[in-house]
Design a protein around this nucleic acid. Structure first.
Lengths: 210, 210
DNA sequence: GTTCACAAGGTGGTCAGACCACTTAATCAT
DNA sequence: ATGATTAAGTGGTCTGACCACCTTGTGAAC
């Protein structure tokens, strides 16, 4: 095993790193083919079994896809089977309502702050129309309002994490902030008061629930 | 390979299921020990390499923990949230390095702020010993340092989300802040300067990488 | 009896080589 | 041309062999 590695790192972890680098260097994209196991084994000077351990891990993560007799490819679509299998590993131990709420709030606060300098007139109008729309339920307003903000952050991961928590907390209750909250936040945006955002969120102790 | 399995299922996937069942049947909990690889190999009538492929995958997911010379243990992680998050955003990458880094940084900042008023002398000593330990690599220091902070937040979900990102970013690169960062943060804690934490994190633009 | 050093056994880490199953492409016979 | 056959390449799996590491127990020295 010649995969350069820091002390006590396992070979398969080094292989993981090498593979990532290979993908980078060769600009591989979804659907592209990786070198064969034997080729990687020789090139990285590691046993084929170690190569396989790394590939298996990547496979379970859904990052690659292997086709018997063909080769290994960068994954293109998501495999449901994997997810199901993983889910079955789960034992109860659910997150507390408190953890969920405070973490979600934190994400919302952060999004609200991050977009502060990127909002223009148009954005503010949009946000206003959401909170003024009497057709919408408070909870729906909440979701739409923040969805808009998260989109503005341009951080897909951040939005994804928030959505997951939103979806999960949805199964518990539909929570949102008191109506004046959104109004004040918008006010802070319009009057350019960055510093007050933090305080606004910190003032929220308990959410409203449906 | 006698692991009962539907057509074309790979042995390691069957092994995965068997292991889950084993955990169920024996009521194993976090920290408990799994049978040895050789024992599983014999019991499930599968080659040790197949057993290992399954274990490696579980390890990368953070569901188990292996200790050289000792055995394999159920990890203390293990949670629905972890798996759900994993499967959803990892499978549909488009998550950029930048998103990952900034989201992770955000979580770390938030943890650093949340624990501000809960740290006592003992905590500060612990943190200091981590950053002063010359045996540790910068990346390991980073992980240990923030792991400590996340533990102090008492918010399991927050920690899990962070761990998840840490683990995922690990497959890309081992990133950490410049050494003086931790020093300054600790300094802010000692001199009771809550306000400076935000600035400290905002000052971080790019991480160091290994 | 207590303590310490060391040997033995168990466990994960890794490798090499052997087959098997499957896919693709080249080859050959029609 | 067309279709069947063959060969080569690839993943899938097993076996057996070492190595490195940890725990435990044994026995020697005190």
């Amino acid at each position: 095993m010649a995969v350069s590695m820091s002390p006590k790192q396992k070979v398969y972890q080094g292989v993981l790193k090498e593979i990532r680098q290979f993908i980078d260097n060769n600009q591989l994209e979804s659907g592209d083919k990786l070198p064969s196991e034997r080729e990687l084994s020789e090139k990285l000077q590691a046993g084929r079994s170690s190569i396989r351990e790394a590939l298996r891990a990547l496979e379970l993560l859904g990052l690659i896809e292997t086709r018997h007799g063909e080769g290994t490819y960068l994954s293109t679509y998501r495999s449901l089977q994997t997810v199901e299998l993983l889910s079955s590993f789960i034992l109860q131990k659910s997150v507390t309502k408190g953890d969920l709420f405070s973490t979600k709030k934190m994400l919302e606060k952060e999004a609200a702050k991050q977009v502060f300098y990127d909002l223009d007139e148009n954005d503010l109008d949009r946000l206003r129309s959401i909170i003024d729309n009497s057709e919408l339920l408070p909870y729906d307003k909440h979701v739409m309002f923040f969805e808009y903000l998260f989109d503005k952050t341009k951080n897909l991961l951040l939005k994804k994490v928030w959505q997951l928590m939103e979806r999960f907390s949805f199964t518990i209750n539909k929570s949102y902030y008191k109506p004046s909250f959104y109004e004040e936040l918008l006010q802070n945006y319009m009057t350019n008061q960055y510093g007050l955002i933090e305080n606004l969120f910190n003032g929220v102790v308990l959410p409203y629930e449906d």
